[in-house]
C-alpha cells in the first residue's frame, strides 16, 4: 500500500496501515471493512450507526442486546466523551479540605 501511494509522492505512516491490518485480522481471519464484519461488533449502537440500521436494530431487539457504552458512536449518542485520546483517562484532584 505504501508502494501504491509512493508513486504519487504521498507518504503514509506505517501505523495507519498497521491499524487497518489489525482491525482486519483481529478475529483470526481476514475480514473486510464492511457490514458483514461489523456484525461481530459488540456495540449494537455502533452497528446501527454504521449501515442498515433497521436490520441491526431488529437483531438487537430480538436478542435483547446490551450496549456497554464503550464504543465512540454509542458514547456520543448519550453525550459522553469517547474513550480514547484525551478521553482515555480522567483526573483525580487532590482537594485540600481546610
Amino acid at each position: 500500500m505504501q508502494d501504491v501511494f509512493k508513486v504519487y509522492g504521498i507518504i503514509v505512516d506505517p501505523r495507519h496501515l498497521l491499524l487497518i491490518a489489525d482491525y482486519m485480522t483481529f478475529s483470526g481471519k481476514y475480514e473486510p471493512f464492511s457490514r458483514k464484519t461489523i456484525e461481530d461488533n459488540a456495540s449494537p449502537l455502533q452497528q446501527m450507526s454504521f449501515e442498515s440500521s433497521v436490520n441491526f436494530l431488529k437483531i438487537a431487539v430480538t436478542r435483547g442486546k446490551r450496549d456497554d457504552l464503550v464504543s465512540p458512536s454509542s458514547r456520543l449518542m448519550v453525550g459522553q466523551p469517547f474513550i480514547g485520546g484525551t478521553g482515555m483517562f480522567s483526573l483525580l484532584h487532590k482537594l485540600s479540605v481546610s
Binding site: 465512540p72 456520543l76 466523551p81 469517547f82 474513550i83 480514547g84 485520546g85 484525551t86 482515555m88
Partner: peptide, 19 residues
Amino acid sequence: ERDSLLSHGSAFLLQDRLF
C-alpha cells in the same frame, strides 16, 4: 467532521461540539 476529531483524539472538543 466527527470522524476527524475522533481520529485526533480530541474527546472533549468533540463532546463540546456535539453535546
